[in-house]
């Protein structure tokens, strides 16, 4: 397969993630969309690693997996705090800092 096919697939997945992050009102829905975007980036790294015959891209992807997992852990902790404070996980309910 040409490299562009993998890059286009990952770009499409990334844009689905952007759409989700912009339209979701539920904080967990936003997290789901962010996961899609992070996953799209990883596909790029692995595809480049394959094309240039270097394993460094795969090492990067492993590190990025671990980073994404810690991001989800903290994100969900924040969502649970938001729920405790507002009895809702709608992103609109967290508006105390709005000027």
């Amino acid at each position: 397969m040409p490299t562009q096919a993998y890059l286009l697939l990952s770009a499409a997945l990334f844009c689905l993630g952007i759409f989700g992050a912009l339209t979701r009102r539920n904080a967990i829905g936003v997290l789901v969309a962010i996961e899609l975007m992070a996953n799209a980036v990883n596909i790029n790294l692995v595809a480049f690693s394959r094309v240039w015959g270097s394993l460094t891209g795969q090492v990067f992807t492993l590190f990025s997996l671990a980073l994404t997992v810690s991001e989800v852990v903290i994100g969900l902790a924040i969502v649970i705090l938001l729920y405790r404070a507002h009895q809702s996980v709608l992103t609109d309910s967290a508006s105390e800092m709005k000027g």
């Binding site: 009102r25 539920n26 969502v79 729920y83 809702s88």
Partner: peptide, 27 residues
Amino acid sequence: LYTGGVITLMLFGVMLTDHRHDVGVLN
């Protein structure tokens, strides 16, 4: 990591937070 860890965590997150009355306005 993802399907074993992240998805399980997210499902816990959904179930720990009440989203029943958010369903209609999710998007």
